[in-house]
Nucleic acid binder design. Structure first.
Lengths: 230, 230
DNA sequence: TCATAGCAATGATGCAGATCATTTTATTGC
DNA sequence: GCAATAAAATGATCTGCATCATTGCTATGA
């Protein structure tokens, strides 16, 4: 029995289990008839700011950097992993991607045809509600980030970032950092040198330990305190 | 003939014309049965971060400041005027407001019961789609802001802000500034002193003119250039 | 009309963090 | 295993902006 389409239970990352659950069987068939699975190697570009947005992109596995390209500097807006969705902001308006995305590790994604996605939205209010919920979470995260930017020093923001990496991206404590110091600096809007110096400080203070690209948070409560007072 | 409920054509600001248009007559009746109109004086608090979010708040007229309160500093996330909607991020999750809002001018708003709003969403995919579109625009604006924060100096960000006030908030060129310099500094994440000094510079360079709280942009193209290179 | 208070202007000083330059350490390919 | 290249560390210097302190301005109200 051939099952070419997305498995509701296995495909946790790609279509988001909760999105899946909000669609009736008939819609899932439509959904699956209009999707493509793809793999990207570390460093490859997944979507390009300003280009025509033909698909909604769901991350099945891996870590992806979402960034904006300016005239000379780029800044990272967020990191996403399994379950993350790209391209929702391109559903309406000019229909171009509002940001670029790059695979920070080998990454599996699933492309869903934009028109199909839009059609499913129009026909399935539960699905639309789930999408609203997803976008809302993005917006909440982004307003927190904006608040950090305008009220905290990089001390605090780096502490926040480390906690975020630990809790939301790598889900483990000694975690293998798949981002370079330059990547970190682009997230925090600072320089790579400052990141280096701050890391040194955190190591000296016994708050973290670092050995060949692996970070171990030793004193999480102290790190939390820094992230608040920063 | 009594028409107590919201007039589709007149109530442009409150319920958003486009949202209105996406609902069938029966839903509008439900909508209107569950809404309240209110007025706030300049300076009054419209909603409080962390409090239970019982309503979606639509701005009918006036200018509203959306801000986050930190332990000691607050930062302004955005300014909204007629057509702006508050509280959408509280539809799900813990159901509390994620930010505070304050009237910067006398303001008319319309409260829609949260449960009713949610029910309408679930029953009207077109309405849900419009809401997605609205939230998406917020998200796009906020990512632009985040990008500015991490790549530009306050020179550029103030220029951006002045253009935004002119184009999106006051819709006129010599515009009466209803925000204090402190308000401006909280938007840009800087100090009021810096704002003062930057204004002086802009005046000296003949880019703007300022007289009793009214701002006149004299050289818009130069201001745009500053906003880009900032 | 004056008094009190909040807002704005402006100077002096300090510091966080950028930038530049150099060295050291990892990575990658052959 | 070595060269070539990229990433990281680290020091020296510079600057954008915050902070503090003072003075001037403009409102609102007895």
């Amino acid at each position: 029995m051939e099952n070419t389409y997305c498995d509701k239970d296995q495909c946790l990352g790609c279509t988001l289990r909760r999105v899946h659950n909000s669609l009736p069987e008939s819609a899932i068939i439509q959904f699956d008839a209009n999707r493509i699975e793809l793999e990207y190697k570390k460093g490859e570009s997944i979507c390009k700011q300003g280009s025509f947005a033909s698909s909604i992109i769901c991350i099945r596995s891996g870590i992806v950097k979402i960034y904006k390209e300016g005239s000379h500097i780029s800044s990272t807006l967020s990191l996403k992993n399994a379950g993350g969705i790209l391209g929702l902001q391109s559903l309406f308006g000019k229909g171009v991607y509002h940001y670029s995305a790059e695979a920070l590790t080998d990454t599996e994604i699933c492309l869903i045809d934009m028109a199909t996605f839009k059609k499913l939205l129009k026909e399935n209010p539960d699905f639309a509600t789930e999408v609203i919920q997803y976008i809302n979470e993005e917006l909440i995260g982004m307003s927190d980030q904006l608040h950090s930017f305008s009220t905290k020093h990089i001390h605090g923001r780096l502490a926040e970032l480390l906690l975020f990496l630990h809790q939301d991206i790598y889900h483990s404590n000694p975690f293998k950092l798949t981002l370079s110091k330059t990547d970190l600096s682009e997230i925090l809007g600072t320089s790579k040198e400052s990141i280096s110096r701050l890391f040194k400080e955190l190591k000296n203070d016994g708050i973290i330990k670092e050995s060949n690209r692996s970070i171990h948070i030793l004193d999480e409560s102290r790190l939390k305190r820094i992230s608040l007072t920063g």
